[in-house]
Design a protein around this nucleic acid. Structure first.
Lengths: 250, 250
DNA sequence: CGAAACGCTATACACTGTAAGGACTATGGG
DNA sequence: CCCATAGTCCTTACAGTGTATAGCGTTTCG
């Protein structure tokens, strides 16, 4: 019987082997047939570069195939499918840098983690485009999570209280990174369209400022707007940590 | 000269008119040509029902056109474009329910807001699929924001401290709703694929539990997992509010 | 040395959003 | 009143997507 069937089981297994190929899992393809003319890391480099430049929408199988000098279908032995490709891209782009913490204050350690994750998402804005639910499940993602859990543990946060903090932190970092990316793209015509809509709304809805006094009078993007999302992450971290320290263990 | 050009300005204007059609903005199309055989609200009802059933990916122009008994292109006079269609859908599905707050505790009022927004996102899981940055800009969205800001104001949270809380709350609610939706879809074959991947990872990466002791020993989804995301939202709200009350005004 | 498994290409299919052009219809200005 | 105009709605068509399939050529195993 053929050992290379396309059963969902072996498909999932091949994907996991590729994901964890640098952490002790052997990549698939038991030596047979012609030598692969590409390396998976090269493919992912190309795909990530493409996503950095044009967003996730610019990553089509044909586009990255062309970039590595291969026809569209030639990619499939390397990445399995489009969905698995973006999972591999996520992991490939999510390498966790090294830094010291073990400081006395919880807030400082959490802030260090959060700001580094934020910077990663700003460097690769498409990371926040891929839905929260379908995380890659790869090693780098696991590194980040484990690191945060270690910080919480070291500062004596009880296990049942950790989940909420983890969710809040990931969610806030991702959302802030997305607005930062939106700010960054404000030079394009995209900004003009946005301003156009805002102006039209004010023009066409007469009682807008009376009906929404608070939301329409929000600071209309101050001078330091480029740094605002990053600063927002810092504030949220401090808020959360202050909340954690406010009660002993409820 | 023709007044109905496709200039970006009038395109944006038509879109805003449609978005705010129930709040004093006149919808486009000054009486000319044959009477429209559809109502925009009917179109949006169909589109929202489709998204509820099959997710945002199931919403194609042809699919919703077929559902309202019209050819694919027949939709365009009503919705403008696909992007504008999903903006209209967002707003159409985001009607804010009525409830009383004005309680003495900040946490209770914020929790009421957050849980209602959470329930909305659980009822329409695709709401969390549409990227954070491209909010609809519609009236219902504005309602939600204004309401939260009113709560914060009434409890004396200073304006510069509001932005971070707002971001954290929206982000957490959306993320929690997405995991809730993922749990909900756990009966399908999607769950089997997920379990398959997890099993493969444990099998193929030998030192997984030693390398990631904390993240691999997380509670493997307890009995009350259906309610876990909602409970997580409540915990996060209390955490944030405790943090807000812990300092007078830093 | 076959033969089976693989890398890679080319072709093809179903599906997407929407541009283009035509048939028909109600309305505004003359 | 009449007709140009601005609408709705149709069919057709195009560029682009992910990927199934078939074939060719190459490498390694039995």
């Amino acid at each position: 019987m053929g050992t290379t069937d396309k059963s969902p089981a072996s498909d999932a297994e091949a994907h996991v082997r590729r994901l964890w190929r640098h952490r002790g899992a052997a990549p698939p393809s038991p030596r047979r047939g012609p030598r692969p003319q590409l390396a998976l890391d090269a493919v992912l480099d190309a795909a990530v570069a493409l996503a950095d430049a044009e967003g996730l929408a610019g990553v089509s199988t044909r586009a990255v195939a062309a970039r590595v000098g291969v026809s569209a279908m030639g990619l499939y032995p390397y990445v399995g499918s489009k969905e698995q490709l973006v999972a591999l891209m996520q992991d490939h782009a999510s390498v966790m840098p090294a830094w010291d913490d073990a400081g006395p204050a919880l807030a400082d350690d959490v802030e260090a983690w959060a700001l580094r994750l934020f910077d990663l998402h700003v460097a690769h804005p498409w990371l926040a485009e891929v839905p929260w639910a379908q995380a890659s499940g790869g090693p780098q993602e696991q590194d980040w999570l484990e690191r945060l859990l270690a910080v919480l543990e070291r500062h004596g946060i009880a296990p049942p209280r950790r989940a909420a903090v983890v969710t809040a932190l990931y969610a806030t970092v991702r959302a802030s990174a997305q607005t930062a990316a939106a700010y960054r793209g404000m030079a394009d015509g995209e900004a003009a369209a946005w301003r156009e809509r805002a102006a039209a709304t004010r023009r066409l809805v007469p009682d807008l400022t009376e009906r929404y006094p608070r939301s329409t009078s929000l600071p209309p993007v101050a001078d330091d707007w480029r740094e605002a999302p990053r600063e927002g992450v810092r504030q949220t971290v401090r808020l959360l940590c202050r909340g954690l320290e406010a009660d002993g263990g409820a």
